[in-house]
């Protein structure tokens, strides 16, 4: 076991991990931050997406010890300080961008990474950026609408509707 320290949602945290401890295990089991989901555990679905030093990564495909010293942000860090929903989260609620909600943490974190890079993406850019985020409930149209709305753009009926 080795000790690992990082900043998670602005708070310094540390804990004991094995070499093989995944970042997602450290977040969920070590820190009790169960908002980050494990959908596949095979790097395919994106339910586990978090930000490490500002970049979207799959927390099931990175070791906790690799995040030593990093700034990590999870879905728990997306709410506004007073506890109300952040812009992207609120848009997911307003546009019914979730059904069972299992994929939602990863969708929101991917959307946040996209909007940080590209504040006014086209619908095609949103769809392309979400390539690694699978929604088993297949609610993609509303997810895309939510992200368009969160970026302050008008929400047209989307392609294929």
């Amino acid at each position: 076991m080795t000790n690992v320290s990082m900043t998670v949602n602005g708070k310094s945290v540390s804990g004991e991990v094995e070499g093989r401890t995944l970042l997602v295990e450290f977040l969920r089991e070590g820190l009790g931050l169960t908002g980050t989901h494990v959908g596949c555990d095979t790097s395919q679905c994106g339910a586990c997406v978090v930000h490490v030093d500002g970049k979207a990564v799959k927390a099931c495909t990175m070791f906790a010890a690799e995040a030593e010293g990093a700034e990590v942000k999870t879905i728990e860090g997306m709410a506004i300080a007073d506890g109300s929903l952040g812009t992207i989260q609120q848009a997911f609620q307003d546009y019914h961008g979730l059904q069972c909600g299992f994929c939602t943490p990863g969708m929101v974190m991917s959307a946040a990474a996209l909007l940080a890079d590209n504040p006014r993406p086209s619908e095609a850019e949103v769809r392309s950026y979400l390539e690694g985020n699978l929604c088993r409930c297949t609610g993609y149209h509303n997810i895309v609408k939510a992200i368009m709305a969160a970026s302050g753009q008008s929400v047209e009926p989307v392609a294929a509707e």
Partner: peptide
């Protein structure tokens, strides 16, 4: 290649 999260790592 893959998706944005794969490309970041």
């Amino acid at each position: 290649i893959g998706d944005p999260a794969v490309r970041n790592r």
